[in-house]
Design a protein around this nucleic acid. Sequence first.
DNA 1: TTACTAGGTAACTTTATGTAACCATAATAA
DNA 2: TTATTATGGTTACATAAAGTTACCTAGTAA
Lengths: 103, 103
Amino acid sequence: MDTENKLCNKVEECYHIMGKKWMGLIVHTLMEEPKRFSEIHAFIPDLSKRVLNERMKELEDNGIVLRNVIADRPVRTEYSLTKKGTELGRSLKALEAWADKWL
Amino acid sequence: MDTENKLCNKVEECYHIMGKKWMGLIVHTLMEEPKRFSEIHAFIPDLSKRVLNERMKELEDNGIVLRNVIADRPVRTEYSLTKKGTELGRSLKALEAWADKWL
DNA sequence: TTACTAGGTAACTTTATGTAACCATAATAA
DNA sequence: TTATTATGGTTACATAAAGTTACCTAGTAA
């Protein structure tokens, strides 16, 4: 009987969220400044609008991103990181530093 | 013209690797000590053998994991993190700390 | 009139992942 | 003898996730 034979729920959950395609890049992209839908899409052109929209909803549901709809015409939507999201982005910098060294 | 209008290849690549399902949990699981195929599977039961095997090959191809086949019967396979993999695991601890605080 | 913009949505195709069965070999159990 | 178990896979098939294309709304520009 090992004392460390089960994964922590929180660890599992964070990898479940961040293990989805494009999630990391989207959060990374929002780190500098809030961006609109089309701006995120311009930064990550291989990510389709359909999935980008799905990911943004997931990030909003997780309290990582805030969606601000600007009632202009055409309607604009601005996405910004919450405090939770900003801290997530900061934690991802360690991974990016690893990438810079090893990839 | 913005100076920061393109994603760095290394950043893209690391999210491409780590953005695959189960990758993070597998690396996490190997952090404590090397493990055999069936041990990893026991830690992450929802991960199928088919995909676990696929992920291990990818990790080996990326130089993150070392596969050691022990010619015993039945044949055993032990997976351990390389230096590159160990440093990856360390960088993921920041993400796990975020999870512990926010999830 | 036609085209363009922004931020989507709907229908459909392709890729990734999940599931169940199977393999080889040797040791062990019935 | 005839199963059964263990290990680390592989194979074929089913389902879920992601990619593609066309379309929507309303206002503006050509």
